[in-house]
Design a protein around this nucleic acid. Structure first.
Lengths: 305, 305
DNA sequence: TCCTCGGTGAAAATATCTTTCAAATGTGAC
DNA sequence: GTCACATTTGAAAGATATTTTCACCGAGGA
């Protein structure tokens, strides 16, 4: 019906991306009074106008729908609908511009929304740092050792204990024999059993956690291949590690103890290790993974809705 | 309980800014086939879809206008018009800003360096999605409840169990009475003890893990404030949750089971919860944190070299 | 004063979006 | 397998929003 005259109306411009304010200024002289009011409103508050219908904008500016449409045309759009779409884009655009200003520390009186933003940002940063700082040669060696190990023992206490359990869980799921030791005494006791061909992994952010170093030392002495995942590659734990995987030490604040960001970093390393192993043992890992998935499906209750 | 509200303007979510793809992924399972086709088209080519009318999009996806509108509603918009507006915003956003879109899957023969890069990127993405999709009102309510709770019980099995332990550990460190239950039977047994003023938190990615839902239900019935941390806010678990915190559902691949990315998401939510509580109880939290830090320092062996 | 003409908005015409409703499809019980 | 029931779906009716039409208004010039 009316789509035949689509492009004959606006000879001058394709839909302007962000230079809307400028365009308004340029075209203002050639506008009539009412059109100027509309253009002004649009340039002044793109986001607000994007939320309005033609009628709404007409009322806001004290003009009529026809004038609004005419203004939209003059600005280079086929009609108001398209101007509105562009406006929405612009609004999102300038909103995103303010985003990167979130490098501040988390404060006690931060609103919860800021906490979420800052925390996510920090953790993203931590991940990037970790990925950048991770020695892929060491990682490759660790993967090779773990993939062919007779058994894998993992040591971690405190927050690192959870990371160790995570790794153990995952390795178990792809058919490896892995165990995360949480009790330091039992860890040492078990480490005595290790020998060449076995793998021992110590996880400690500080690099100097005695309870973790001790079993690793024993494993090392017994001839097992030892791996340290630590934020302090120069720490004592590295003495007894054949391969050291470095986690990043992110900023910590009063409200955000080191444990929090180190955990993110440790988990990334652990995940990389896991995927590396899964790749190398793909033949057995893939079926094992789907089998465990199948088994779990039965534990779910049907959706309610 | 976040059941949909028919007539009000903003049912459950404010117009999502950039987290659309994440939202689509989260809600996809609860969508019908045709709705999924629409959602897919929208997530796949926001810019293209923003240029289409309802009818156009319906034809493109081989569905009807009604279905398109339904999908828009499900995604949290009052109607298609608003979805379209948001789409335009998104398009502008990703055109100008960073939209690397290097979302290649991790393959079996990827070199280890690529694994690290891709994994870090994926997790960063997951964090961003989670942060964007997290309802800060619900979070605020959850924080308020937890901060003043007589005791906090946490339920999680499998991978979520570790997240629960992490949360419990942290809350304990700032002086709260928190416990992560790993045995479903004991969890139920303990849930019976809860009453008004207590808080129960269930962590389940699928939203339908019976072992976790059951204790939460008991706690709910007993009058405790219940919180669900789940990737499926429409799942059965939400029935018994006063506050639902949504984690993002990232893409999973054969080598990268869902558990891996859901864990990242869950941990972010848990961290936010923790920091929120720490803020509210700062007077007691701060000394408690430094005290536990002090206590641990003695467990470290001195640095070598 | 009267005429002309661009500017303007009310209202009609059209396009677009939303809702309703019944047919089609799937699902579970028997 | 068949039936009863619930869910999903699209066609068409209904409601809004946008665009177009057209007549009115008022400023400047003969």
């Amino acid at each position: 019906m009316t789509n035949d005259v689509k492009e004959s109306f606006n000879p001058d411009s394709p839909p302007a991306p962000a230079a809307l304010a400028a365009k308004v200024r340029t075209l203002a002289p050639s506008m009539t009074r009412s059109m100027q009011r509309v253009a002004e409103a649009v340039a002044g508050d793109p986001a607000g106008c994007a939320a309005l219908t033609v009628t709404g904008l007409a009322e806001l500016t004290g003009t009529s729908e026809a004038t609004v449409v005419r203004t939209a045309r003059l600005l280079g759009y086929p009609g108001y609908r398209d101007l509105r779409l562009a406006l929405a884009g612009l609004a999102a655009h300038q909103q995103s511009g303010r985003a990167p200003a979130v490098t501040a520390d988390i404060a006690v009186d931060d609103p919860i929304a800021d906490v979420v933003t800052k925390l996510a940002y920090d953790e993203q940063q931590t991940l990037a740092d970790t990925a950048a700082g991770l020695d892929t040669v060491q990682l490759g060696a660790a993967v090779a050792a773990a993939a062919t190990a007779r058994r894998v023992d993992i040591y971690g206490v405190g927050a690192s204990s959870l990371v160790g359990q995570d790794l153990a869980q995952k390795l178990l799921r792809i058919g490896l024999i892995a165990h995360a030791h949480m009790d330091p005494h039992l860890a040492v006791t078990n480490a005595v059993q290790l020998r060449s061909g076995d793998v021992a992994i110590a996880i400690t952010h500080s690099g100097s956690t005695g309870d973790v170093i001790e079993p690793l030392r024993v494993a090392f002495d017994r001839g097992a291949t030892t791996i340290a995942i630590t934020g302090r590659p120069d720490g004592p734990v590295s003495q007894y590690a054949d391969h050291v995987l470095t986690t990043s030490t992110a900023r910590e604040s009063e409200l955000r103890p080191a444990a929090m960001s180190s955990r993110t970093s440790q988990l990334l390393v652990v995940d990389c290790l896991f995927i590396g192993v899964a790749q190398r043992t793909y033949e057995t890992a893939a079926p094992a993974l789907s089998a465990s998935y199948e088994a779990l499906a039965h534990r779910h209750t049907p959706r309610s809705r």
